[in-house]
């Protein structure tokens, strides 16, 4: 229900000709405590959301097409956003692998490849499920084939979290840099307006 309402809202509030790059949620969603880590011992917890905009993406490293495409586009979109907002409002990007069994050993290198400041983490199944659920995201690990190889299904959209730690919006493919930046800038204006009300 939440998704449907949010989508309807976005459709009403944007011109029909504009490609929808994101959906602003009707109400901010509080996130539960979470903790992810990587093989360098860096961590990503709820505290990292404080005071800055964050984009969280779920994926997995054996993902040859969608995940690199999304991160490559996010890199361009974040660069564009940097031209529209104050430096301290440029979103941080965190990639969370939902496939720790295969990815935990070298997860930290992944997101950095797309931008030196992008970070990547994974965690326990429980932590992954907690944040996936809280952000209305989705993943499913499919049954392995005869070689033991398995596919992973996952949400194609990514979550936008405000400096107060609440989920505010979802970005959707194709993550066009200009339009995504425009969407993020508008989202930030709306957020600041709410704060001053």
């Amino acid at each position: 229900m939440k998704q449907i309402a949010a989508l309807a809202f976005a459709l009403l509030s944007t011109p029909v000709t504009a490609q929808v790059q994101g959906v602003m949620l009707d109400e901010p969603v509080e996130l539960p405590a979470f903790a992810f880590t990587n093989e360098l011992g860096e961590d990503f917890t709820q505290a990292d959301l404080d005071g800055n905009w964050t984009i969280v993406m779920f994926g997995f490293l054996s993902c040859p097409d969608v995940c690199p495409f999304t991160l490559g586009n996010l890199e361009a979109a974040v660069a564009e956003t940097g031209m529209r907002v104050r430096p301290d409002s440029v979103p941080k990007v965190a990639f969370i692998s939902v496939d720790p069994d295969r990815d935990a050993g070298y997860i930290s290198e992944y997101a950095k490849f797309f931008h030196p400041e992008f970070e990547s983490f994974t965690g326990t199944r429980e932590q992954i499920n907690t944040l996936v659920e809280a952000t209305d995201s989705f993943y499913r690990i499919l049954d392995p084939d005869h070689t033991g190889y398995y596919e992973v299904q996952h949400s194609s959209s990514v979550s936008v979290i405000a400096p107060d730690g609440t989920l505010r919006a979802k970005l959707q493919p194709p993550f066009d840099p200009g339009m995504t930046a425009e969407f993020l800038a508008r989202l930030q204006i709306q957020y600041r307006r709410e704060l001053t009300q």
């Binding site: 490293l61 993902c63 040859p64 690199p68 295969r102 070298y106 290198e109 992944y110 490849f113």
Partner: peptide
Amino acid sequence: VPLAPPGVMAHA
């Protein structure tokens, strides 16, 4: 073939 992040087990 797009350059891929180091260590990844699959690219395209």
